[in-house]
């Protein structure tokens, strides 16, 4: 090696506390619940073929699968409610403002990210610290999907439950025209979650790899490591994209 790069070429990284503990706990509970819900939900829709000689009275496999689905569903639902609450009280990276496009800059940033990350237009990384705008917006759509899934799920569950809470949702089936349609909406929505999870996990790895900021571990310890330059810009409140290049 003959290169004599000076340390000044290196980017100085600064540690930023991004994800508070409640957000991290929420994230992993949510991820776990969704994995369980997708797996059990898929099995409910497409039960495996079991040729068993055992008597039905000795088995409760499908009952168990459904129980897991309902248990995970409750965790998923209340965890989700908690996250909504945290969007109002948590730090600025947890704030609801990250998710809902309210101004022109938000859209601009989304476009930038699209160009950089997806279309791979620019040889550059972006500078945001929490969610980037596009990610934030996708999570917003995800939250809507959560809502759809909870409403349709509890709508279906209303017929099987005697708890007043589930029964709050009896109107859902009538509203969509019967349990059959409701079930199909619920089922189709599962695929949104699966596709989301695939892309999401990939992008997390992608960012970690391309940007080298500790993206993956941020959901573990809460820390990200951002460039001094980005830090300064953020502090000045300058938009991370418009005046680079």
């Amino acid at each position: 090696m003959t290169t004599t790069t000076s340390s000044a070429d290196y980017k100085k990284l600064r540690r930023v506390f991004v994800w508070e503990l409640p957000v991290r706990v929420y994230h992993w509970l949510n991820a776990l619940a969704i994995v369980v819900l997708c797996a059990t939900g898929y099995l409910i829709g497409n039960p495996p073929a079991l040729m068993s000689q055992s008597e039905a009275s000795f088995r409760y496999l499908f009952g168990t699968i459904r129980f897991l689905h309902f248990a995970a569903a409750y965790i998923f639902f209340f965890n989700f409610l908690f996250r909504l609450y945290w969007g109002f009280v948590g730090n600025k990276y947890a704030s609801w403002k990250n998710f809902i496009p309210t101004n022109k800059e938000f859209f601009q940033e989304m476009w930038e990210v699209l160009k950089i990350d997806i279309l791979l237009k620019k040889e550059r990384e972006h500078m945001s610290v929490g969610h980037n705008a596009l990610a934030g917006f996708i999570y917003f759509l995800t939250f809507i999907a959560f809502l759809v899934q909870c409403v349709t799920g509890f709508g279906l569950y209303a017929a099987m439950s005697t708890w007043w809470f589930a029964e709050l949702f009896v109107w859902v089936a009538d509203w969509v025209g019967g349990d059959f349609t409701l079930r199909n909406i619920h089922h189709v929505a599962m695929w949104f979650f699966i596709v989301f999870a695939i892309i999401h996990v990939y992008l997390v790895f992608y960012h970690d790899y391309v940007e080298g900021r500790g993206e993956i571990s941020s959901m573990g310890g809460g820390w990200k490591f951002i460039e001094e330059e980005a830090f300064e810009k953020q502090r000045e409140g300058v938009d991370a994209y418009t005046n680079t290049d």
């Binding site: 039960p47 495996p48 073929a49 079991l50 068993s52 039905a56 009275s57 000795f58 088995r59 409760y60 496999l61 499908f62 009952g63 699968i65 459904r66 017929a159 099987m160």
Partner: peptide
């Protein structure tokens, strides 16, 4: 489904 006599088979996962 709630009153189906085949329900135990459903719960057992026998189809």
């Amino acid at each position: 489904h709630d009153s189906c006599y085949r329900r135990p088979f459903y719960d057992a996962g026998l189809f």
